[in-house]
Design a binder for these strands. Structure first.
Length: 894
RNA sequence: GGGCGGUUAGCUCAGUUGGUUAGAGCGUCUGACUUACAUUCAGAAGGCCAGAGGUUCGAGUCCUCUACCGCCCACCA
């Protein structure tokens, strides 16, 4: 028959490369990922954490986007109007760095091009390479509504950024000020605190003697890790309660080398226990010293410039690199006898999160956002449970950060980004006049204060996160005054779930919550699922510089996106980091292959009578009833796990059901020859279970499930053009606890018989008889074919209780004795010993149970069902013991 | 210095509110080409659940302390 042959030709290996791109096209063409307003359906919205345009898909993305895709497909299949909003982030510093590196290859610096040309160059780069990550997300199977793709520098998006700046400025929440900020001398820009993580660094602690003025040969010794900043010192501070220095406060010391006189001051900030209890104060080069300087009205001479080189004020060291200067100054001080000692010292030093250069605390004029007023409602939203974190432990981390939030430095001295919408009135010489800065939605032409038309825009751009924090609503074209935009927002906002890595909890998540509440008056999302970090199998973060990355695209090439997705999900516990190695993906690959082959088997054996899955209830065998029950349970459990973000659990449930229940037991059982009527019915059930399973698995493995679904359409009536609906627990439809129990008994009998076979090394072709006795024997006999076929035994018959056949191996299950008849193969002594051991074990178990049940505390306090269950088990054990003892007595006679 | 996570089989890890005999994958060992799958099948071995105390009728699960590993935050130069 031609039809059957068609399926017999299916290859015995699943080949993802042949199907994945085609499948994706089917979905896109059908527009299944698109979501538009629909007043009849409930929306379910996820916004993608926009990857950097410079990004290429790494395992972190793969994990993150698989979670999101599972959620979005799952909800789409539940009937929600599911929108997954995609996009990319302009990633200021990162992207600028990439383009600068490209220019450097041509021997150019960005300054050679000038601002405008350089920015154009970045746009060109973006047009050419910016969609790489999007293509890669599609290969992963991400089912975003791609029509809505946004970029944080789209003109509409820029409008939102500008609106927000103006709004906050007018509200008095944005201000400009001279402060110490984190400066990256390589990227040449200010960085927010979060962008300059502290790293433990091996350094030295230098103890330097500062001569005290008017006191010969007397010194005050200060400890410093950065002797080059000595040149910028304007005081030495001690703790006011420190007796050692009491009489020195108010005196002066001579700053070595440049011989400047500076005062000794008292300030609580100094910890008398540390170092010598005396601290040099360098207001321009240390954030703490800066505040000490403010309190004491000290000068703040800048001795290190934006390049990390010493300034004019550094006298003899002018022009030296900061680290070079450090060496130099120490050797000079040593020559002068002013270095008391040098100790090895491990301390925390800020590093640029983009290029890892050591951060220089730098005094400069920057723009800041006052965060306290924004943080308050965001704290409240979480405390009141309107936003929840999964796992919940992140709540505390979030609250702790929010309650101690610092103002946010939002200006960056780079060219790629949203230009700060601030104009200054300048005179003909280009110097700022006294007029206040101009901050409006429209570009100003004249100064509203003095009528001057000579205006210049602030040269800085905004921190990338100043645009990202608007993502959940700016992607919908907010704040455009347009009924469509408003309706869209009202329908899709707030979004449901944010899936992200904890690394950007402060960068992004917290700020989105603040922005949502400030500008929309509503939380941006209700659930935040924070997944772990992807590491290599030795626990290091995967990073290009470490060379330990596993490229997800390579895995997709080799094993398929489904294998990648399933493996990742299955091995990553909720909120835990995941340690990866190449071989771990074999789990998913083997699973795809198993699914493929089971399908191949089912389809290629299909009888022509099988045209649908309408199986008949009257023809159900025990195994049929059992697998339907099992399916039903699995549907229920998977739905439950998914609703609670227990992704790994749901993946493992699916794996176990398909492999170890459906394939290992049910498919095997259907190979039993039981006549045409039942065979047809069972084939319908095979298709039925397979089809339900595919739909249940679809969010995890979208490609193979769709591929098979398309083939199933050829043999059965399926309503959907593609996979559309999630099976509901009721739909699986066939809870059958009775069948479950009976089948479990049969399974465990088969299991014991197989075990006995290996004990005596039977060959597969040997088919010994089995005898049964006990109250449960009848039940088993009803399904005798199962036992015969799956345990590979001959006749199975009931015998009278207590009549043990000689020459057999015997076993006891609750309510059942069974005997594997093996003439000439039974070693009676060994057999006696085996039974004796079982008796011993059973007796021990009984004793334990009796003890437990005689404890009034237990029977009174434990829940009734637990106590009853224990009683039942005790009865079972006693029954088993009785049967074992009878067996043992019989053996004695042999 | 504060906070968080981890410590369960040889390895990598699950274990939802405390309640059967603590599970999986890989690896190891024994067998098997049993009409889909050797990316397979049938079986086996292997655990003082880091340590100590506590709460409880009952603890891998809750509490306290300790040890080691990892992460995050923090203005001790």
């Amino acid at each position: 028959m031609a039809e059957e042959n068609r399926f017999k030709d299916l290859p015995s290996r699943y080949d993802p490369s042949k199907v994945e791109s085609g499948i994706y096209q089917i979905w896109e063409k059908a527009g299944y990922f698109n979501a538009d307003r629909d007043s009849y359906r409930r929306p379910y919205t996820i916004v993608i954490p926009p990857p950097n345009v410079t990004g290429i898909l790494h395992m972190g993305h793969a994990l993150n986007n698989t979670y999101q895709d599972i959620l979005i497909r799952y909800h789409r299949m539940l009937g929600y109007n599911a929108l997954w909003m995609p996009g990319t982030d302009h990633a200021g510093i990162a992207t600028q760095n990439v383009v600068e590196r490209k220019l450097a290859k041509q021997g150019l610096r960005r300054q050679d091009l000038g601002r405008e040309k350089f920015v154009q160059e970045v746009w060109n780069w973006k047009e050419e390479y910016g969609s790489t990550i999007i293509r890669q997300l599609k290969r992963l199977g991400a089912s975003c509504d791609w029509r809505r793709l946004r970029f944080t520098m789209d003109s509409d998006y820029s409008l939102a950024v500008r609106y927000v700046f103006v709004h906050l400025y007018k509200k008095g929440l944005i201000y400009q000020g001279n402060y110490i900020i984190n400066w990256c001398p390589r990227c040449h820009t200010a960085l927010a605190d979060e962008e300059a993580p502290k790293k433990e660094t091996q350094g030295k602690l230098y103890y330097v003697r500062y001569p005290i003025k008017d006191r010969k040969e007397e010194f005050i010794v200060v400890a410093t890790t950065r002797p080059e900043t000595i040149l910028g010192d304007t005081a030495v501070a001690v703790n006011p309660g420190d007796k050692r220095y009491k009489d020195l406060v108010g005196k002066k010391v001579i700053l070595p080398i440049i011989n400047r006189e500076i005062p000794i001051i008292a300030d609580d900030y100094v910890d008398p226990e540390f170092g010598t209890g005396a601290v040099k104060i360098t207001p321009a080069h240390d954030p703490d010293d800066f505040w000490v300087g403010k309190r004491h009205n000290l000068d703040a001479p800048v001795v290190i410039d934006s390049e990390g080189k010493m300034t004019d004020l550094a006298g003899p060291y002018k022009g030296l690199d900061r680290f070079e200067c450090r060496k130099q100054i120490i050797s000079d001080l040593q020559r002068l006898g002013l270095v008391e000692k040098i100790e090895d010292y491990i301390h925390n030093v800020g590093h640029c999160y983009r290029c890892d250069t050591v951060i220089e605390p730098y005094l400069s004029r920057q723009w800041f956002v006052k965060m306290k007023p924004l943080a308050e409602p965001a704290i409240k939203a979480v405390k009141e449970g309107r936003i929840r974190f999964i796992p919940s432990r992140w709540t505390k981390v979030y609250l702790n950060w929010m309650e101690n939030i610092q103002d946010w430095c939002i200006s960056r001295q780079i060219w790629w980004g949203h230009r700060i919408p601030v104009w200054y009135c300048v005179d003909k010489g280009g110097n700022r006049t006294d007029c206040p800065p101009i901050v409006e939605m429209e570009d100003p032409k004249v100064c509203p204060n003095c009528g001057n038309t000579n205006l210049v825009q602030d040269g800085d751009v905004l921190d990338t996160w100043f645009s990202s924090w608007l993502w959940p609503f700016a992607t919908f074209y907010w704040p455009k005054d347009d009924p469509d935009v408003k309706a869209d927002l009202e329908y899709f906002y707030p979004t449901n779930t944010l899936v992200t890595a904890p690394e950007i909890l402060f960068f992004w998540v917290a700020r989105m919550i603040m922005a949502g509440l400030e500008f929309m008056g509503e939380i941006p999302f209700s659930d935040v699922y924070l997944h772990g970090t992807v590491r290599d199998d030795t626990g290091r973060k995967m990073s290009k510089s470490l060379g330990n990355i596993i490229d997800p695209l390579e895995i997709i090439e080799e094993m398929g996106a489904d294998a990648l997705r399933f493996s990742l999900i299955s091995i990553t516990a909720v909120g835990q980091d995941v340690y990866l190695s190449r071989s771990k993906f074999e789990l998913g690959r083997n699973f795809t292959n198993k699914i493929w082959n089971a399908t191949r088997y089912i389809l290629s054996h299909l009888l022509p009578e099988v045209r649908d899955t309408d199986w008949e209830k009257g023809l159900l065998t025990l195994e049929d009833r059992w697998i339907l029950d099992c399916l039903s349970q699995t549907i229920e459990k998977v739905n439950d796990a998914l609703k609670n973000y227990r992704f790994n659990e749901s993946a493992n449930l699916l794996y176990d059901f398909f492999w170890h229940q459906f394939c290992d037991w049910y498919i095997e059982a259907t190979k039993i020859d039981r006549g045409k009527e039942i065979k047809v019915n069972q084939q319908k059930i095979l298709l039925y279970v397979l089809e339900h399973f595919l739909r249940l698995l679809h969010p995890f493995m979208p490609f193979i499930t769709e591929e098979i679904y398309q083939r199933l359409k050829e043999v059965m009536n399926l309503s959907g053009q593609t996979i559309m609906l999630m099976p509901y627990p009721q739909e699986g439809g066939r809870k059958d606890p009775g069948a479950r129990q009976r089948f479990e008994l049969v399974k465990s009998l088969i299991y014991h018989l197989r075990n006995m076979r290996t004990q005596v090394s039977l060959r597969p072709s040997d088919r010994p008889d089995v005898l049964l006795s006990g109250p449960k024997a009848r039940e088993v006999l009803e399904s005798v074919e199962l036992v015969r076929f799956l345990a590979r035994v001959g006749k199975v018959e009931e015998i009278e209780e207590g009549k043990r056949p000689s020459e057999s191996l015997a076993g006891v299950l609750p309510g059942l004795e069974f005997f594997l008849v093996l003439s000439g193969l039974v070693d009676v002594r060994r057999e006696k010993e085996r039974v004796r051991q079982q008796i011993q074990e059973t007796q021990n178990a009984i004793e334990k149970k009796e003890l437990l049940l005689s404890n009034a505390n237990f029977t009174n306090r434990a829940p009734k069902n637990v106590v009853e269950e224990e009683r039942r088990k005790l009865e079972e054990l006693r029954d088993t013991l009785k049967r074992l003892e009878a067996l043992y007595d019989d053996l004695k006679g042999d």
